[in-house]
Simulated scan of single mutants.
Amino acid sequence: MKKVILLVAVVATTLISCKGEKKEKVETNEEVKVEETVAEVAEAKVDNVDTANSFLTWKGTKPTGAHNGTVALKSGSLVVENGEVKSGEFIVDLNAITCLDIEDAETNQKLVGHLKAADFFDVATYPTAKFVIASVENNEGKLAVTGNLTVKDVTKSITIPATLTEADGVYTFKSDTFNIDRSEFNIKYASKKFFDNLKDKFIDDLVEMSFEVKTVK
């Protein structure tokens, strides 16, 4: 009897712990006005993102596991004046999406192909995604970056935590990990918001993301 009670207690504790690990999603709002775009900064150096060393990371989960990978940037600009971010625009190349956790080449390519397909990112129609910085608040070195995120045919504003560092004339603009609700950007595949009776075949709507953007000298 004591063993049964102990087992129940352990199960209950585990369930409570799992609930406590629930992901927090970034709130999305209507597209915000960008007061100062990269093109409007006359003396700024544009197209200054080092695309070879800049990337976005992603992680998607489902009841049976998770997958993660990277996406390269196609181009971008980051305007920094007196050590402060003034504006920025990052173009994400969805044709360059990769999966890092699947070692079998055929299985890996199958997943990547599905992510590019019409029922997911629909890369043939929407080959890029975009993040445009609208405003930045600096709180003792920690940045609250508000910008417009465009995925497929949807643009919404989000605010994410990030940092800016500089070394040898190169700026690194790096975000903390944040979670985006893919269903809000018209990515509906295996979402419980749009399909019934999926049982354990659904894919979580929240996608974990982060980015690291480096400038060229």
Rank of each mutant, 00 (worst) to 15 (best):
V79Q: 02
D104N: 15
A72T: 12
S75G: 05
V123D: 04
K152N: 09
K116I: 08
A129T: 05
G65T: 14
S77N: 03
K74G: 00
F120L: 05
A117Q: 05
A129M: 07
A72L: 07
K142P: 02
G88W: 01
C99R: 02
T64G: 10
I102L: 08
P127G: 03
T70S: 03
I91E: 03
S135D: 08
Q109P: 02
K130Y: 06
T98G: 03
I102N: 07
V92S: 00
S54D: 14
P127E: 15
G113Y: 07
N148T: 06
A144L: 14
K130E: 08
H67D: 11
A134H: 03
T150M: 07
L56G: 00
E106I: 15
E89S: 12
E89W: 00
E106M: 10
D104T: 13
I133L: 08
D119K: 01
S87R: 02
V136P: 00
A105D: 09
F131G: 00
G113T: 05
T70F: 12
A134C: 12
E81C: 12
V79E: 03
L115T: 11
V123Q: 05
V112C: 05
G60I: 13
T150H: 03
A72F: 06
G83K: 10
K59P: 04
L115R: 01
F90D: 00
K86I: 14
T64H: 14
G141K: 15
N82A: 09
V132D: 01
G88M: 02
A105R: 13
D104M: 14
V151P: 02
S135L: 13
D122P: 06
L149Q: 11
G60W: 10
N82D: 11
G141S: 10
N82C: 05
S77A: 10
F121I: 07
D101N: 14
D153C: 08
V145S: 10
K110R: 13
K86C: 04
T57I: 14
T61Q: 09
E106P: 04
S54E: 08
